[in-house]
Amino acid sequence: MATPGHTNERQPSAGTTEASVQILRGKHIGRVIPLKRALTRLGNHGSVAIIARREDGYFLASLTGGETVKVNGIPVGDQTVRLKRGDTLEIDQNLLLFYA
């Protein structure tokens, strides 16, 4: 018998909530990509970025460097950027919205 306030179901960790990105510009406009995996790769040959899901949030890094991956209009370069709800991501010519 379960005690009040306790269940046998696993609760999600307090750290990371589920998040997604929605494509705002490009040939797949409107598409929503859930970020369920530990690593999500976005982009193509010329501009590739990765979103890492960690216990303390979601982080974006460019795999190709340069100026083609941006968060809120600012190039990522060789930095890793922690994403916040409402951030816009530019990967090559595509524009995406991050939300959690």
Rank of each mutant, 00 (worst) to 15 (best):
K84V: 04
L89H: 04
A49I: 02
Q93G: 07
K70H: 02
P75S: 14
G57K: 07
V71Q: 01
K70T: 02
G77L: 14
V71D: 07
R85I: 00
R53E: 00
A61R: 08
G86A: 10
G86D: 09
G66A: 04
V81M: 05
P75W: 12
A52I: 04
G57E: 01
I50E: 12
T68G: 07
T64E: 06
G66M: 05
G86P: 08
D87A: 03
Q93W: 11
Q93E: 13
E67D: 14
D92E: 13
E55S: 14
Q93D: 14
Q79C: 09
V69E: 09
V48W: 05
R85Q: 13
Q93C: 08
F59V: 09
G77T: 10
I91A: 02
D92P: 01
A49H: 01
P75Q: 10
D78I: 10
D78E: 15
R53Y: 05
F59E: 04
L95N: 02
L63F: 09
V81S: 00
N72W: 04
I91S: 02
V76W: 06
G73S: 05
D87T: 10
N72V: 08
E90L: 02
D56G: 03
L60F: 08
L60W: 00
N72G: 03
R54D: 03
G77D: 12
I91V: 15
R53D: 02
N94G: 06
D87M: 07
L97C: 05
L89R: 09
I91F: 06
N72I: 05
S62H: 05
Q79I: 03
V48L: 15
V69K: 10
L60G: 07
